[in-house]
Design a protein around this nucleic acid. Structure first.
Lengths: 292, 292
DNA sequence: GTTCCGCATGAATCGATAG
DNA sequence: ACTATCGATTCATGCGGAA
C-alpha cells in the first residue's frame, strides 16, 4: 500500500483503478462544481456534470470498505434563473450504481458570497451528501459531541491553525483549546446542520472549505489509523485534517498546481507535528475515545 | 370571487378546479408528509407520493398568476435506512409540468425533535422549495431585511437582559418582533437559510410550522391585498399569517377536523384585528415598505 | 499584551455587450 | 439566436497595524 499518506497527481478515475477493492474507510471530497466557463480548472458544464462524475463514483464505490462512508460536498449552480438539476439527478443515478443515499447534511455558510439580484438572495448553504455501501457502517457519534449551547463553537473559530494543532495533540479530545472549559458541561449529540464559515483569509492557499469540515466527518466516521481518501484534494485541506487527527490519507488531484500546493501543506503539517513530538516526548493526536 | 378569505373543506385538487386561471399571488403549503402507516391523516406511502402530488401541482400551476410564487415545505423520510427520493423525483417531474425550480431555501429547525439512532443524528432542517411559472416574478426584498451581523451583535451585547429576551431573531432571519423599530438602520438582505424554532406548545394539532415561516414568505412575495393560497391549510397557520399582514387568504383542507380548527382560528384572529382597529382608529399591519 | 478598526477577499448571479 | 466575457452588486470574516 505504497500510496498511503501521499498526494498523487492524476485523474482520480484512472489513479483509483490501481487501488485494491474495499480498502478505504472514508471518502471526503468537494469536487469542482459545475461551471459555465470551459477554461477554468474543473470547468464542467452543468449539463455534462452527471456523466462526468458517474464513472468516478463507480471507482469510489469499489475502493470503499463495506463499512465505509462517502461524503460528497456539492451545490447546484443557477442556470437561466433556475437551480440546475445535476445534483439531484446524480443522487438518483448513484443509487442505481449501488450506493445508498443515507443522509444529507446541511452546511450553513455564514459568510456566503455577497451580492444582490432582483430575484434571489445570497446562497448560504451547501449539501453534504452521505452515501454508503451497506446499511451498517462505522459511525463514532461520541467523537463529535458538543456542549449544550453553542458558545463554544465561536471560541474554536477564533484560534489560529497552529494553536489548534498543538492543543489537539495535548488534550486529544478533538475539540481544541481550553478543554477545561468543556469539562463538566453537559454534552449532547449534534444534528445534521453544520455551522461553519468559509475560509477566506489565508494568503498561501485558498481552500474552499475550512479544515473543521473534513475534521468533523473524519472524527465521526473513522478511527485512528484508518484511511481517508480525497480524490479532488485541491489545496490539501482534507489531508491536513486527517494528519491532525492521526488518520492516514490519500489525496489525488489532476492539477499540478494543486498537487504541489497540497504536497507542501501536508509536509508542513507533518513537520509541525514532529516538532511537537520532540518537544513533548510523545505525540498522541486523537479524535475518538479509543486509545491508540 | 366568493372563495376569498374562506376555509374550504375538500380535496384541493377538486376544489381548485372551480378556481379561475392566474388568480393566486402566492401558494404556501406544507403538505402531509409521506408516511408508511396508511391510517394516519394524510398517510401517503413514500413510493406513491409523487403520483399523488402531481395532479394537485398541475392545478397549482394553473391558478397561480404568471408573476406568482409557489413555496413547498417538504422533507423526505427515512425508509430502510435511506433518505427516500420522492422529493427530488417530484422536483424533476414538476419541471416537466412546466414549473421552474427557482430556489431551495433551507429551514433550520433549532429545536428539532429529540431522539438518538445508531446511524444518524437528529434531522434539523427542512426544504422550502421555490417554484415559479416564469423567470420574472414579484419579489419584495426590502420587506424582509435584517440587521447587519457585527453591528447588531455589538449593540446587542450592551442591551439589558429583558431587551435581549425580546429579540428572537438575532441569528439572521428577522422574524421575531419589531427589530427595525429599535435597530433602525444598517439593514442587510437575508440569505436563503432560515433559522426558526418549530412550534412546540400547540395542543390541538400535530407538529406544525411557526406562523413566522409563512409570514416571511408572504412579506417577500406579496403585497397588501394579494391572495395567498394554502391547499393543505391544516390548523390554519398560513391563513393567520396572511390576515395579520393584510393579505387575502384561501385555505383548503380535506379533513373536517382541520377545517373546523382553522376556521375557528381565522375567525378568532379577525375578531382580534377588528378590536385593534376600533381601538387605534386604523389598523396597519406591516411587513412591506409599500403603502397599502 | 489586549482591543479595536480598517481592509482585502471570496464555490456567485444578473444583465448587458460583443463575437 | 446562441454563446462567451465583463462590470456591478454585496457582506461576514480574519488578518495586520494602530491605539
Amino acid at each position: 500500500m505504497e500510496y498511503i499518506n501521499q498526494i498523487i497527481q492524476g485523474d482520480c478515475e484512472e489513479v483509483l483503478k490501481q487501488f485494491p477493492d474495499d480498502s478505504i474507510d472514508l471518502i471526503f471530497t468537494s469536487p469542482p462544481y459545475a461551471d459555465q466557463r470551459k477554461s477554468t480548472y474543473g470547468g464542467i458544464k452543468p449539463d455534462d456534470y452527471v456523466d462526468w462524475f458517474l464513472p468516478k463514483a463507480e471507482q469510489f464505490l469499489r475502493v470503499l470498505k463495506p463499512t465505509g462512508t462517502f461524503i460528497l460536498n456539492i451545490k447546484e449552480r443557477v442556470v437561466n434563473g433556475e437551480r440546475h438539476t445535476y445534483v439531484i439527478e446524480l443522487i438518483l443515478k448513484m443509487r442505481k450504481q449501488g450506493w445508498l443515499w443515507t443522509e444529507e447534511f446541511m452546511w450553513h455558510k455564514k459568510n456566503s458570497y455577497p451580492g444582490k439580484w432582483p430575484n434571489r438572495f445570497r446562497d448560504s448553504w451547501e449539501r453534504l451528501l452521505q452515501f454508503n455501501k451497506h446499511k451498517k457502517f462505522n459511525m463514532y457519534q461520541d467523537a463529535v459531541m458538543v456542549p449544550v449551547g453553542d458558545w463554544a463553537q465561536d471560541r474554536l473559530a477564533n484560534l489560529s491553525e497552529t494553536d489548534k494543532i498543538r492543543d489537539e495533540s495535548r488534550v486529544g479530545s478533538g475539540f481544541g483549546k481550553n478543554i477545561s472549559n468543556w469539562l463538566g458541561r453537559d454534552m449532547v449529540y449534534p444534528n445534521n446542520v453544520i455551522h461553519m464559515a468559509t475560509e477566506c483569509g489565508n494568503r498561501n492557499h485558498s481552500a474552499a472549505f475550512p479544515v473543521e469540515l473534513p475534521s468533523w466527518f473524519i472524527k465521526l466516521f473513522t478511527q485512528r489509523g484508518d484511511i481517508v481518501l480525497d480524490p479532488f484534494i485541491g489545496s490539501g485541506t482534507t489531508a491536513v485534517a486527517a494528519i491532525e487527527l492521526g488518520r492516514n490519507y490519500v489525496g489525488i488531484d489532476i492539477s499540478d498546481e494543486y498537487y504541489y500546493l497540497s504536497h507542501e501543506r501536508t509536509s508542513g503539517i507533518q513537520m509541525q507535528l514532529l516538532e511537537i513530538k520532540s518537544e513533548r516526548g510523545t505525540y498522541n493526536p486523537n479524535g475518538t475515545a479509543q486509545s491508540g
